[in-house]
Each structure stands twice: as C-alpha cells, then as structure tokens.
Write a protein that binds this DNA or RNA. Sequence first.
RNA 1: GGCCCGUUGGUGAAGCGGUUAACACAUAUGCCUUUCACGCAUACAUCCACGGGUUCGAAUCCCGUACGGGUCACCA
Length: 483
Amino acid sequence: MDRKVRVRYAPSPTGHLHIGGARTALFNYLFAKHYDGDFIFRLEDTDIDRNIEGGEASQLDNLSWLGIIPDESPLKPGKYGPYRQTEKLDVYREYAQKLIDMGLAYECYCTSEELDASRKKQESEGKFSFRYEKTCLNLSEEQKAKYKEEGRIPSIRFNVDENKVYTWYDIVRGEISVAGKDISDWVIIKSNGIATYNFCVSIDDAQMEISHVFRGEEHISNTPKQMMIYESLGLQAPSFGHLTLIVNEERKKLSKRDETIMQFISQYKEEGYLPEAMFNFFSLLGWSPEGEDEIFTKDEIIKLFDETRLSKSPSMFDKGKLHWINNHYIKELEEDKLQALCLPFMEKEFDLLNKSDEWKKDILELFKPQLNYGLEIIELVRPFFEEYQLEEADIEFLKETDSKELLETIIIGFEELSEFKATDIKEVIMTSGKELGKKGKNLFMPARLAISSKRSGADLATVAQLIGKEESINNIKKAIETL
RNA sequence: GGCCCGUUGGUGAAGCGGUUAACACAUAUGCCUUUCACGCAUACAUCCACGGGUUCGAAUCCCGUACGGGUCACCA
C-alpha cells in the first residue's frame, strides 16, 4: 500500500444496521485492520427528511456488538471531522462555488414540475431513463434574476463532459469504464442548500484521506460521478472495490420487506446469535480465504483477509450455514456464558422459579450440542413444561409392545434409587430391559413415552433426571393406568 | 431499452490453460452411544448456463446467445 490505509463505513441514519451494511462495514474493517489502517465511521445524513431518531446510535451499537469498532466516529472524532455531513454543509457549498467559477457546474432553475414534465415527455418518446437537457446551462444573468423574482430557488448541477470516459480499476471486478455521455448533468447541491450524496462522499473521502472504498455494487454507477469531482477539484480519489449484493434464497437482492431472512443485526442479537459467529459468517459472505477451514476467530480473519479474494458473484444468505456456524460457537461456550445466552429466553417463556440452578445447568448442557441459536432453546425445552399427556396412539403403542410389566419393573428400580442421577437411571432402564428381554427401540421408546409422553427427545436418562424422581414415577404410573 | 456485472452439484464455494473439479452446509446410508441428539465414516457434479472459436489441450482465454442481477432521482 502506498498510502496509509484509511477506510470508512458511512451509513445514512435512515434505519438500523442491516445485513448488507454490516457486511460492507465488516469488509472495510477487515481490510483496514489487515493493513494496519484506520476504520472510520461517518454519517451520511443529508436526507434530512428520512433520518430517524437514534439511527446513528443504533448503527454504532450494533456495529460494536459485532466487534467492529471504529477508530474515528462522531463520538470519537479524529482530526478529520466533522463526521456528520450535515455539520459541514458550508464546505460543500464552497466547493460547489469553485466548480461554478470554473464553469464546471451551473445553477439550475428548473422546478420539479418542469423536470417531471420533461421526464414524462422523454418517457413517451420511449426513453427508459431521464436525461437532463442542460436547459439552464447558459442562462444569462437577466434570466436568472427573472427566475429568482418568480421565487425559484436554484439547485446546482455538474456540467458533465460527454466526451470523457471514466475508467477505474475496481479492486473486486477489474477495469470498469463508463462514458460521460451516459451520465446526465446531476445535481450537486439541492435547492434546499444541502449537497447531494455523490458530492458529499467525494469531498468527505478526499478530506478524510480515505484510501480505499469497499461498498455495494449498486454504487458502481455512482463512481464516475465521484471521479468527475475529484478530477475537477484536483483531489486524490480513493481506490474502489464494489462488493456483490447479498441475495435471498430466490437470488433476488435483499429488499427491506423481504421476510425470508431477518434483515437487521439487532434481530440476530435478540434471538440469541453470537457476535463471534456473525462476524465469522459475514466474512464468508462474498469472500473466502485460501485453504479449507471456515471457522475463524476475528484475529485470524483479519490476518487472512485478502481483498483480491473477494467474490464477483452474488452471495446468497444461507441460513443453514449461519446456524451451523452459530452452533459451533455455542458448543464452545462456557457454562455461565451459555446460561447468560439462554436463560433470559426461558425465563420469559416459562416459570422457572421452582427450578434449581443445578437443573438449569443440566438442561442447558443437555441441549447445547444441538442448539443453533439462543431463542431455539424454548422449543427444545418446552416438553419439560408441558402437561403430561398420552395420545391414543401412544397408549396403543404401549399395549402393542406389551410394556406394562417393563414399566412396573422400572418403577421399582426407580424407587430404590437414593439419588436420581442419569447414570443410575440408565442402569435401571437397562437392567429392567434385560430382565424382560427387551432392548433398543423396544426398550427406550416405551420408557420414553411413559416417562415424558414424548416419542423423541434428548438423552432419556438425563430427561428423566430433569423431570425428577417423583414425577417420573408418577408419570409411569399414569401410563400404566391406561393399559 | 442504454450502460455495468454475474452464471461451477440441492446450497455456499475453491479453481486463474493439463486436477480423480477442493472444502463446507444440507441430504442419504452406515458406525457409535442398546432410542434421540452429538460425533465419526461413506455416498452424492459422466462435468463447470448454452453455442461457436483459439489451443496439442479450456470450467479456466475470445466472441455470440440465453438467463439472472445492478443502475439510470433535487435517495443514500
């Protein structure tokens, strides 16, 4: 790298951190940290009507939950501030004036009604995209004065040179070029005096000495506009890399309304996913390291990160894979961490007051190997809180397997146990089976049914232990009564 | 429609002119624990969207077609 690496994530505070944003932020972060550079968080809040309350804080909080901590941000300013675009509107206006003075930008007095009319007209001519016809390019001072008298407030447009071709080497896609003739004169300062996105980013990136920009592929078409600004103002442009989109299981771009996938990071947090797992998962969404492993710590990923291995084809958000990765990290969790993750969900759903700490610990350890995310514990554990009830078919099954005697034997065995521990319980079930010549499914299914009224579930002996001696025996008695 | 981009098994994804086309998820089967889950093992692309070309040789390079996506705002 011939420049100090400085990258940025620059969301608009119009919503909370979503998957796409998180991934963009992550790759920028990885790149920065890999090259020992800085990761800057900046706010693009120029669309004042759409900004939401708390948007900035929410973005920052979710990012830090994921482990992506900015080196500079509005809350932790470096020497490149301000970090909110609305706080430097005069700067943009100054640069706009420079462009006007150079003849590279001009005031446009067209009203939105006129623009709409022109748009409609072009549409009716079969044009698919609107192109501003430079109507106001050569307005005389008189005409301007006249418009002003009418109460029109001008916007400022960039005067695009249609003979130019803008070419850049994209870090992920290679060379891309776009012709100036394909770009309409675009607004740099809106009539409300606020600069537009493309103008702000260019100036901010230059002023903040941003060296590299990784962003979504929807920004490819913005790149030439930004290049025009750098070129005319003599500013140094960053290098660009355009990440592929994240698509859903139908290969469509993730839209805000897409319900097949949870969109917001906060939702993953709320459902009990682990940040380390999310970090790991996102890093694999559109990137792959050399080698065959897929589970990495944050530091390992930073070390391995290589921007030339960023994928060019869309990344599908694979929920199954996320679950697998998350489960992996859950299995590594220590007892107290596991409890912190799961207990809140259980407490909300069930009455845990008369359950001992030992019981809570055991039940979580029981399900840990198969738990994909925290919230899932509720369904796994639900059978323990449901009323004991045998279905007709279950009773039938117990009759068919001729299990009455077996169950009676198990009760006797259970009653003799001073301590009701899984290992002993298993012993009882097995010796009872041996006595009556039953084994495998013929042994465990009836026993399970009688003890828990369920046909499947976790390790039966542990389940019985968790149900408790008295209740287990009572349950079996209830089952026997039906026979 | 213009411009830009992509297309490898059910899915993610390696691969960069010569490979038995990695690896992972999912699935199936088997083993293990005398059920389940976990774990372990094995299987699963007559072949890299299609059609041409270049080459001794192509998933890999070139052209075209199809399909998919992005973008064409006083939104960011």
